[in-house]
Amino acid sequence: MGMSVTISAATEQDAEQILKLQYLSFQSEAALYGNYRIDPLVQSLDSVREEVARDCVVVARLGEEVVGSVRGRLGEDGTAFIGKLCVHPRLQGHGIGARLLRAVEAALTEQHGATRFRLHTGHRSEGNLRLYRRVGYETVGTDQGSDGVPMIVLEKPAGTYAQTA
Rank of each mutant, 00 (worst) to 15 (best):
V66K: 04
E51L: 02
K84Y: 12
Y36T: 05
P40V: 04
E126T: 11
L62F: 07
G68H: 03
E29H: 06
L100A: 04
I38H: 00
R124D: 14
D46K: 04
V135T: 06
V70S: 02
R49H: 10
A80N: 01
Q92C: 08
R134P: 00
P89Q: 07
G127Q: 12
H112F: 14
V42I: 15
A31S: 06
A106Q: 09
A98H: 06
A103C: 06
R124P: 11
R133Q: 14
G93K: 11
V70D: 00
K84M: 14
T121W: 07
S44G: 07
G148H: 09
A80I: 07
L131C: 05
G68I: 12
A114W: 00
I38G: 02
L100M: 09
V57G: 00
R90N: 13
R133N: 05
G127F: 08
G72K: 05
Q22R: 15
L19I: 12
L45I: 12
L45A: 03
L108T: 00
I82K: 08
T142E: 15
N35L: 10
R102N: 13
S44N: 05
G72H: 04
L24K: 13
V42W: 03
L85N: 03
V104Q: 01
L119N: 01
K20V: 10
S47D: 13
E105N: 08
C56R: 15
F81V: 06
R124N: 11
H94I: 07
R73E: 11
L85V: 08
A60H: 05
N128E: 15
S146E: 15
E110A: 06
V66S: 06
E65G: 04
G68E: 01
A60M: 08
V149T: 02
L32T: 12
G72W: 01
V52S: 00
F81T: 05
S69C: 15
D147W: 10
R54K: 15
L131Y: 01
R130F: 09
